[in-house]
Amino acid sequence: MDPTTATPGPAVPAGTTPAAGPPAPAPHRPARRAVLRTAFTTTLVAGTAGALAPVLLKDPGTPDRGARRSQAPERFSETYRGRHIRGTATAVVPAGVHPGAAAASTTTAADVTIDGRPLHVMRRADGSYLSEVNHYESFPTLLETARAAVDELGTARLAPTTPHTI
């Protein structure tokens, strides 16, 4: 069959997980989590967001920044443009990993809400965050991610879906 020809019918039902991959098996998340659970771990929780610079609506030509902050766990709760945004990130650093090592060495549990509704957040390899509202740019901190989502939403509200944790 000509591989460039579209196959009839829906390719994959919504909600299933992409299973196929390149030949080498990737490590499975559960295995990784199990390793982290059994290893000695250090949990870091940040204080207030007061130290975070209010960089958000930057010139599109300006490179993303914030390397020094991207690893820092956060906790914030504020009103931004009339919307209540909250966020908590908890970084779990496996023992023996240098704090300056790549973001991939650190797992982060992130919870962000806007007016009480969950904002689905993902991460990039450099440790920055992107949300389901801003999928084509990333931000050094969860606070900036939440503010950017408010800016993009205008007065629209997030859907009341199940909270997501990365």
């Binding site: 599109p60 801003n134 999928h135 740019e137 993009e152």
Partner: peptide, 30 residues
Amino acid sequence: EGWGIRGSRGVANHNRVHRWIGGSMAGAAS
């Protein structure tokens, strides 16, 4: 594809067009 890279460059080309349109095109269900 146009990912912004810290200390190197900003959001470009493909990604930037998604951002320019904004709204639905900026998000996960573009």
